[in-house]
Simulated scan of single mutants.
Amino acid sequence: MENSIAILGLAIVAFAALTYVRARKVETRITQLYPAIGTLVPVQKGVIHALQRGTGRDVVLLHGALANLRDFPEDLVSELAKSYRVTLMDRPGCGYTSGLKRIATAKAQATALAQAADALGLRAPIVVGHSYGATVAAAWALCGSSLPVRPAALVLIAGPLMPASVALGGLRVLAKSATLRHLSSYLAAAWTPRRVMRFMIGEAFAPEPVGPEYAKRSGARLALRRSSFRANARQTSILAPLLKQLAAELPRLELPVELIHGSEDRVVPCAAHSVAAAKLIRGARLTVLSGRGHMPHHTEPQAVIEAISRAALALPA
């Protein structure tokens, strides 16, 4: 019996050591495949990774959970850059934004992003957020005059905005405990097979097909790095109370708001979030895309471009 326990203990130690080494090796490989492609902008207690394209009125693009600024498709960014100065940002805990480990709430994220926007010279941007990025965008607009840069308009794509269900997969379980988040981050970095990544991406796009180059081009594997995995789990852990507070504040929004949502979104249900939020936000315009899932910025980018154009027309020249 004692020998069996000793052997089991050695096996656990060996597995832990192998996992640690493998996690570091995998992270190094991921970083080599997907290096930073923008500028590292100093903010209080960290840096925000940002990429700018084009000239004109400022538009900020904020990605969702388990993603990074590469998530926005090149065709969409290139088209917007013809008319706007487009700034893509990695949200705190994601991509190459770093040093902001304790920032989890949407308003705290917005504060750091506003500091970066100020450093980059942005003024009254149209802030476009997808999924969790939409939550942060809405919170940014609700932060008031305390921030150096405030949104002039919002375009919220498939955003969690109400205290309703959101499909979070395994993160819902892992988010409950700091210890679980820490241990699972090593396991995720070291042992997540590609087929699991493909499955998760497929769930996000469902019921629509995933673009053939999405997984490779988007740098989705950056989310498997230990720090990013823990940050996403931490942000997920507070999502429910955050959405309850956000919904209570949505009627205070007094700027142009465009809501875009796929009718068949399985991650953030359209009716429970955007349809319900549209009833609370005065003057909000809701566009429901029939048959679309959670990724309309990929599957119907023209709808996003048109929403941004409408928002721009609603603002002073």
Rank of each mutant, 00 (worst) to 15 (best):
A137K: 13
L154C: 04
G170H: 07
P163M: 12
I157R: 01
P148W: 02
D118W: 09
G170Q: 11
G144L: 04
I126Q: 12
A139T: 05
G159K: 14
W140M: 01
V155N: 00
H130D: 07
S131V: 10
R172I: 02
I126H: 07
A110R: 09
Q109L: 02
A152H: 02
L122A: 13
G170A: 10
S146H: 06
D118E: 11
Q115V: 05
W140L: 00
Q115N: 09
V149E: 00
D118V: 01
A134R: 04
R172M: 00
Q115C: 05
A124H: 02
A164C: 03
L171P: 01
A141V: 08
T111F: 06
W140G: 00
L156Y: 02
V166C: 07
S165A: 15
C143Q: 14
V155R: 04
K107F: 07
V166P: 06
S165I: 06
A124P: 00
P160G: 11
T111K: 14
L142Y: 09
Q109T: 00
G170R: 02
Q109I: 11
V128P: 01
A116S: 12
D118N: 12
A119H: 00
L171Y: 09
G129C: 01
C143Y: 02
L120I: 08
G144I: 06
S146T: 13
A139E: 13
T111N: 10
L113P: 07
T135C: 10
R150C: 03
G159D: 12
S165K: 13
A137Q: 14
V136T: 15
G170E: 12
S145L: 07
V149K: 04
L113T: 04
A137R: 14
L147S: 10
L120G: 04
H130L: 03
R172F: 01
L154Q: 06
V166S: 03
L142H: 11
L171E: 06
Y132H: 14
L161N: 03
K107T: 15
L113M: 14
V127H: 09
L168W: 00
V149R: 05
W140D: 00
Q109M: 12
L122D: 06
A152E: 07
P163A: 13
L147D: 09
A117D: 01
Y132N: 13
